[in-house]
Amino acid sequence: MSRSTPDWAASVDALAGALARARYIADRPLATAVFLAVRLEKPLLVEGEPGCGKTEVAKAVAQASGAELVRLQCYEGLDAASAIYEWDYPRQLLAIRLHERAETPAQLETEIYTEKYLLRRPLLRALDGSAGARPVLLIDEVDRADEEFEGFLLEILSEYQVTIPEMGPVRAKQPPVVILTSNRTRELSDALKRRCLYAYVGYPTPEKEVAILRERVPGLPDVLAREVVAFVQALRGTDDLAKRPGVAETLDWAAALLALEERSLRPETVRDTLGLLLKDARDLEAWRGERLEGLLARP
């Protein structure tokens, strides 16, 4: 790449260290993926289980690099006007009314289709990033957006530019670090995936989850952290859960136990706070009885 390399992304190890300083514990595959995304200036598609830290990757990269995080939360019905740009019609109409006597229609048209009347949405703002660190563009839960919206993204992801018909192409001053996340609620188009590097974030190992707890829930007793992780991992290992708890649920639960001043797991407390781990009514109902006792009784 022709650009100079920031210190925090000088190597995979340096990048993993920078993410750790941003309180994100990345394993080697994910650190390599982010490293390549930064160095090759290619978007990174992060897929994986819900609540396992996909969105946090982008936040940590922004924090590690000291750059602005521009976030686009995708949803069904998201269109180019909400994601890229929109003309400020009221101001344009006002300008027309003010200048219609003094200028010809051609002059008016030239006047109203300028940056002054452009409302920048997240994608255009990310391309507009000024000098300094490359901005981090997070396109979150891209699988929630309509397939047609992926078409809008293609030009941005491959060329880092947006074509505005009235003004021509707007090219990024410096390409942002683009991170897309997906929960795989639907298959993304091949065209989109082809433009991206790929990383999968699964459930963490017990050791890694304990380390995450230590980092994210300061003050949590070590014994309690290990018990929490052992319990959550055992819960994930059962095969009849409608929704398995992710790392986010583990963190919430540990924080709740800390707030309740628990020193170790007790059946009563677990039963009372199980709703922080299991977010499905049938799961809760199934696990509040003897099964919970059995799981807690495991060595």
């Binding site: 995979v12 080697r28 595959p29 390599t32 993926a33 490293f35 390549l36 160095r39 090759l40 598609l45 897929e47 298959e187 091949d190 995936k193 082809r194 991206c196 590097l197 790929y198 990383a199 999968y200």
Partner: peptide
């Protein structure tokens, strides 16, 4: 190939990671 140029060829695990990140598009 660009990824290999970035991470080098001497670490087998790193080469595997580059292959995963650049060639795979699904789990």
């Amino acid at each position: 190939l660009d990824g290999l140029r970035e991470v080098g060829l001497l670490d087998r695990a790193a080469v595997r990671e580059v292959a995963r990140v650049t060639l795979a598009k699904s789990p």
